[in-house]
Design a binder for these strands. Structure first.
Lengths: 279, 279
DNA sequence: TAAAATTTGTACGTATGTATC
DNA sequence: CGATACATACGTACAAATTTT
């Protein structure tokens, strides 16, 4: 899928900014339920082994009938995400961390010409999120982030890493969401969620470069340690390195020039203050 | 509604960061259609007098049947947003700029303790968006923003301003969205949309201070001129002023301490470089 | 004036999903 | 878990209104 993309659209026109009339997805309610539960597993709100509320209670919470919920659970169970055990200590349990792509096919689409903009938006938002996280994170947040890095390391150590590309990407998402949650600001979390939703779509469309596990692990480790030490310049620096690398991969995959040149104000503070002192 | 809010929740806990099981809105498809069209009018993608595609074509675009679309149009027509004329040069026309609140009752909710976080998130994102807009905006973008300010000025000149509070707020939204669109980055637009969606919910919940039209107009005017001249420090300064004022209103309405103290890195660059030079 | 073209308005039969029992 | 009843959406065919030619 790489390299040969039909990049005919002119990037950065107004196209797509004023939205067209889009299909109103008349999805079935059990599909909504599937998506909501799958999303929770994927984003790390639910972990393997967790027990969900009973069918009756869950149905009540989601305001759907029990049969409809059962249909959703059936799909999730067949996909291996949930496991249903009956009997006194039975219930609905999370059985797998990896959520198959088919369960979360987002109906929204973006144009090829808009893909590079996702990286630019990360430049705007993510370094600030990391810095805010540094201000407000508690030990539990650091522990969660560290745990996720550790899991990635274990995965990378196995010889079948590439078989688990999807799992690796999901751990990635969880890391960045954990960072967002460390800000203790639910609006920030929600912004990061929508940003990464778009990022995933973009990734599916374009960049299918094999992940470079060791590098990702290294960068995330340094990100965490920069956040831990609340060193704002270090945070900007490592974020800059991270995003620059992603931009480079994107450009290699698709051809140059798609990522707009980075304006001065998006350079890391270290750069900026150096420039200030010089000027 | 002001001043007497039950602000019992402890702010900035993890509550709400890991999402609960939510009602799976099994909304009817015509309601989705209503929302999509109403949203376009409200955000400025559709203007008064615009003619929408014919029923058949619109239904096809939205992938719904004509009867379903008609049900949506009927609701919008009854609300005064659309007007339907038949005959050869008939069709569906936008009839009003102001979209009644009832049409867009977002089903998502946020906690009172999370409201202040919306302002904090604006601090993270909006100044950067304005700066990026300064880099990429064209004359048409400036014209749109100027036009919106002009409309606000006209509205403020009337003696029944307060009767049109909702319209004033909608013009506000349009101004900020126009700024986002000036970045020519659809991901940025989409982030700003979700940010302002939350902002509106927050506003409905808490801050019902009467708008201060003259002040808003003045700040927006200076924002636009700062963007026009691509003066990044001026952009940060006026944005800071704007948001500081909103934070102050919020604190007056609800009691102090809800807005977390602003970390250093969220101070305007001018402040920061002053500090750098001093240190 | 009349006919043609375009667009909304109305009606009904069918399929299917959802909820209740 | 199955069966039944209800609500919803769809497709299609045709009628009515209005403008254009």
């Amino acid at each position: 899928m790489s390299a040969g993309l039909p990049l005919t659209e002119r990037p950065y026109t107004r196209a797509g900014l004023q939205s067209e009339f889009e299909p109103v997805a008349t999805r079935r309610t059990f599909e909504e339920a599937v998506e909501q539960i799958a999303e929770k597993v994927k984003s790390g709100d639910l972990h393997v082994g967790d027990r969900l509320p009973s069918e009756r209670e869950l149905a009540a919470r989601m305001r759907i009938s029990r049969p409809t919920l059962r249909e959703a659970i059936k799909v999730l169970a067949e996909a291996g995400v949930l496991e249903v055990r009956r009997g006194q200590s039975g219930g609905i349990f999370v059985a797998a961390e990896l959520v198959p792509r088919e369960l979360l096919k987002s109906r929204q689409e973006i144009r090829v010409s808009e893909v590079a903009g996702v990286l630019e938006a990360r430049r705007l938002l993510e370094p600030r999120v990391a810095q805010l996280a540094a201000v407000h994170a508690g030990e539990e947040d650091f522990a969660r982030m560290a745990g996720l890095i550790e899991r990635k390391r274990e995965l990378a150590a196995r010889d079948d890493v590439l078989r688990h590309e999807d799992l690796f990407l999901q751990l990635d998402l969880k890391f960045h969401l954990a960072m967002a949650q460390a800000t203790r600001n639910s609006t920030v979390v929600s912004l990061m969620r929508s940003l990464f939703k778009r990022l995933e779509i973009a990734r599916d469309m374009a960049v299918h470069a094999p992940p470079v596990p060791d590098w990702v692990i290294d960068v995330h480790e340094r990100t965490l340690s920069a956040i831990r030490s609340a060193d704002f310049e270090a945070i900007e620096a490592v974020m800059d390195e991270h995003l620059a690398q992603l931009e480079q991969i994107w450009e290699q995959e698709t051809g140059r020039g798609l990522v707009r040149p980075l304006p001065d104000f998006l350079q890391p503070v270290a750069e900026r203050s150096r420039a200030l002192r010089a000027g």
